[in-house]
Design a binder for these strands. Structure first.
Length: 281
DNA sequence: ATGGTGGATTATCCA
């Protein structure tokens, strides 16, 4: 069985490329992120025509995750259990607010489509789009760390109760765990993706029993999964390794191959991420 | 010093 993850940066803008890639790459299950569409807009029929079952969640122009599977797809679950919603910080009252005035109401939490799970050929596959922390002083970074912590807690509990289960936590983690996972650490000084806190949150996932099964078979430095559209980052080979397949022990033992499909980043109309592929025996 | 690319939605926000 061949499993993959791919941040497609819009399913609709990329539908031809995704379909072509599916036909070329012989993938049985693929987790997609950043579909950037609502469920009714997701081009499911296109993938069904290629023999895939489709599960998608998305309800805004941002985020959106999907799983396509040609080995059967069951037990679809929208949202990872226990994940926090983004809660914008409460606005501060104006300086000239009268004494005793009602403080501004706290905004409602924003529910986002960042996780979908399904059982595909006996493997529990989770397509995950970890929040972008934006900046080190931005409240989105605290949210990202909470999100990763909740993911670790839920995954850890699951593995304690189902130690023999085959589980893949896969997707765009928006974390570069090692210095070699960015082309130049100096450029990322003071930026998200490389902070100690984000790296610790990622390491906690691996310590909970979810191993990065791609790195040992596609070692760096210089192996990336994302290259910014700006500043010719791809031709200059200036990328980041932020997309991962983290496998439970039972799944890890099945891995026979893994690679980043860098060629898919080439040419006009490419996503800014490349697919990451894992073969299971 | 700024914008630099690309997507969704429409003058911004997001990555």
């Amino acid at each position: 069985m061949r499993l993959a993850t791919w941040n497609v940066n819009s399913a609709r803008a990329r539908v031809d490329r995704i379909a072509d890639w599916l036909q070329r790459s012989d993938v049985d299950v693929v987790a997609l992120q950043e579909t950037k569409c609502k469920d009714a807009q997701f081009p499911a029929e296109r993938f069904e025509a290629l023999g895939y079952e489709v599960a998608h969640t998305g309800f805004s122009q941002w985020n959106g995750v999907a799983i396509l599977s040609r080995v059967g797809l069951s037990d679809v679950e929208v949202g990872f259990p226990g994940m926090p919603a983004w809660a914008p910080p409460a606005p501060q009252p104006p300086d000239d607010a009268p004494e005793g005035a009602e403080p501004p109401a706290a905004p409602d939490p924003v529910h986002e489509a960042r996780a979908i799970g399904a059982t595909c050929g006996g493997v529990r596959v989770w397509s995950l789009y970890v929040p972008n922390g934006r900046g080190v002083d931005d409240p989105h970074l605290a949210y990202k760390l909470e999100w990763l912590s909740a993911l670790r807690a839920a995954g850890e509990t699951w593995l304690e109760q189902h130690p023999a289960s085959q589980v893949a936590l896969t997707g765009d983690f928006n974390v570069a765990p090692l210095d070699e996972d960015v082309w130049d650490m100096a450029v990322f000084d003071g930026s998200t993706h490389v902070t100690d806190e984000e790296r610790a949150a990622f390491t906690a996932l691996t310590r909970a029993g979810f191993a990065d099964v791609v790195r040992p078979l596609a070692p760096g430095p210089g192996v990336y999964t994302f290259w910014d559209y700006q500043q010719l980052r791809f031709p200059k080979k200036q990328g980041m390794r932020i997309d991962f397949v983290l496998a439970s022990p039972a799944l890890e033992s099945r891995v026979t191959g893994a690679w980043v499909d860098r060629d898919e980043r080439k040419g006009k109309g490419a996503s800014d991420h490349a697919p990451v592929v894992v073969d299971l025996g």
